[in-house]
Design a binder for these strands. Structure first.
Lengths: 218, 218
DNA sequence: ATACGTTTCAAACATACGTTTGGCTGATAG
DNA sequence: CTATCAGCCAAACGTATGTTTGAAACGTAT
């Protein structure tokens, strides 16, 4: 690492620690001491801990959503058809590829997203929805083209289900790896899991919608 | 069951607050003041905050896993075939039906599970895996019978994906409801979402396994 | 070289937390 | 009646947290 500035050293360290232990469980002292900067630097440069959290997400999501927008432009221009595989494939390749120099970065990205969604009360969800709902809606529009037989409302929920599968699995990968290693004696990388995810999600998204609600009582 | 004693009042309140705000963000003072008991009561009856968390989960999961075991016995005895719909249906009906007197209880159950899985460092995951992995493995065995063409390793991950979809969606339901209400002007109950989940999960679990790994590069 | 705005630093501050303490209450048994 | 003991209570304890402070160090333009 080439002697980065204080701000970036804080962001780099906070990113990793937040993903590892959560927001509340990560103290500013833990961040600053590991980053090799003074404790007061966080409040000096960011104003508060909450602002730090927001800054971490902004640094992560802004390039991602811009790249996603560009990829969707590209897809529309070159006439690639809207299929679930194509649309989801773009997202996954992007999530895995935005930081090729650091393969662990993708895992951090997902763990952070998971932490963000677990935080029920915070304004973080609001912030994320405000800043990135546009790209999200665009993605959903493409998916709708891909599966026109699925009603929009149904698709909305299926996208949520997919989000859950992705974030939950990849954010809990560390622990799941130890389980799967014990049961199947095999490793699993982020890229590996992503490959398994795609057919699962595609199968779920384009599943037939039952026209009669299922009975929940026996 | 006598009148709600101190222990149960603490468990009832902690359950709700933990689900709402997370473990670290919920202080013992918040729990005890809302429960109308003395602060010291938690340490007196449970020993520590971590033991309280564990007790909350035990009260929730033990009846659930027992009921699930019974339902699986019943299924095996009556010769109901192993299909994804049947196996998942049992789990969902149980999760929604174990506390019919309080329909919000199911939501709390899922939110708590989500909180548990988000907590990366804690011994909570270990505890859950130790005490409830048997039922879990039994479930997975039945699913394997239902989709014999899916390799065990693949099925393992697909179950994780399904878990993620369920927990993530239902634990974030409050905020998602406001979104879906805004975009589609419609409410969504836990039972409603569960109905939508089933075909999605079935579609994902029994999706064909590609024999050639997908290319992640361009 | 001096002056000035920015960044860094050790130290302190106020607050919130989980936990512990020692005495009080009230029911129960001898 | 009194001895007992689990349950309850207000208060205090030690610690960790986010934040603030005021001075020192630094870089840069004058």
């Amino acid at each position: 690492m080439a002697q980065a500035g204080t701000v970036d050293r804080i962001l780099d360290t906070a990113e990793v620690l937040f993903a590892q232990k959560g927001f509340a469980e990560t103290s500013l002292r833990a961040i600053t001491s590991k980053a090799g900067v003074n404790l007061a630097a966080v409040n000096y440069h960011f104003g508060s801990k909450e602002a730090l959290i927001q800054a971490v997400f902004e640094r992560f999501l802004t390039p991602f959503s811009l790249a996603l927008d560009a990829k969707l432009d590209e897809m529309e221009a070159s006439g690639i058809p809207d299929t679930p595989e194509n649309v989801l494939g773009i997202v996954f390749r992007l999530a895995l590829g935005t930081h090729p120099e650091d393969p662990q970065r993708a895992a951090i990205f997902f763990r952070l997203s998971g932490q963000a969604y677990s935080q029920p009360q915070s304004h973080l969800r609001e912030y994320l929805h405000q800043h990135y709902s546009a790209v999200f809606a665009r993605l959903q529009r493409h998916l709708q083209q891909a599966v026109p037989d699925v009603p929009p409302m149904e698709l909305f929920w299926r996208v949520q289900f997919s989000l859950g599968a992705v974030i939950f699995t990849l954010s809990g990968m560390q622990s799941l790896q130890s389980i799967s290693k014990a049961d199947f004696n095999m490793d699993a990388s982020t890229a590996d899991i992503t490959k398994r995810l795609l057919p699962f999600l595609v199968g779920g998204i384009q599943a037939e919608v039952p026209d009669q609600p299922l009975h929940m009582g026996k």
